[in-house]
């Protein structure tokens, strides 16, 4: 464990807590894409299949449980909770996320490190996570006013993977044979997808104006 990776995990945790805070306290999911939340639940479900078979560390297991629990409860809130549902913008959250799941599954079947069920599922989760934010970014483009909590949620979600890139660079130079091209390329693609959001988010923060994305 290095500082970049710990910072990445904490940033990821903060993004999830910000979202849970928003939904649980003010009972609102305004501006949040249910499609992205469902994709993230699928990412964690397929990535953490080894949660009961491979024990890495207490930290690793606890964090996996937190990410699984939070992502599924967020989907439950947005699908089942009457009050939260009222603020869900289903008319604009129309990204066909099946178009993301199938290509990632096919790609995982073609390009993976080992052809086993768990490894293919893990690789699928890596590819899917890279594109899971797309429905959310599309929704932000469509809804004019982005409230602070939603902006912070997306910002921390993007920041965590860029910290992971620093972690991979660090591990590449400090651990012999530490090479994971699949994770590295997917992580880079994932971070690049946030590039324009980061640009508008930081410039809105610098100019102290409301975050609005260009149409």
């Amino acid at each position: 464990m290095n500082a970049f990776r710990l910072a990445g995990d904490m940033t990821h945790l903060i993004s999830v807590l910000v979202l849970l805070l928003k939904i649980h306290t003010i009972k609102s999911c305004a501006g949040i894409s249910l499609k992205t939340q469902e994709l993230y639940a699928l990412v964690f479900a397929t990535r953490y299949l080894d949660i009961f078979t491979d024990f890495i560390s207490l930290y690793n297991t606890v964090m996996k449980l937190i990410f699984l629990g939070s992502s599924f409860s967020i989907v439950w809130y947005m699908r089942r909770h009457k009050l939260v549902q009222r603020s869900y913008d289903k008319d604009h959250d129309t990204f066909r996320h099946q178009l993301l799941v199938l290509p990632c599954l096919i790609l995982a079947l073609l390009i993976h490190e080992q052809f086993t069920f768990k490894e293919v599922m893990w690789t699928f989760s890596i590819y899917l996570e890279a594109v899971a934010i797309l429905p959310q970014l599309v929704l932000l483009q469509r809804t004019r006013n982005i409230d602070n909590l939603t902006g912070q949620y997306v910002f921390f979600l993007g920041a965590y993977r860029s910290l992971y890139i620093l972690n991979w660079i660090y591990r590449y130079f400090t651990e012999p044979h530490y090479v994971h091209w699949i994770t590295w390329i997917s992580g880079l693609v994932q971070t690049l997808l946030y590039a324009d959001f980061f640009y508008y988010y930081i410039s809105s923060w610098k100019n102290n104006v409301k975050l609005t994305l260009p149409a």
Partner: peptide, 10 residues
């Protein structure tokens, strides 16, 4: 690490 090692990252 060898390909297919148990993945130690989240």
């Amino acid at each position: 690490s060898e390909p297919g090692d148990s993945h130690d990252e989240l």
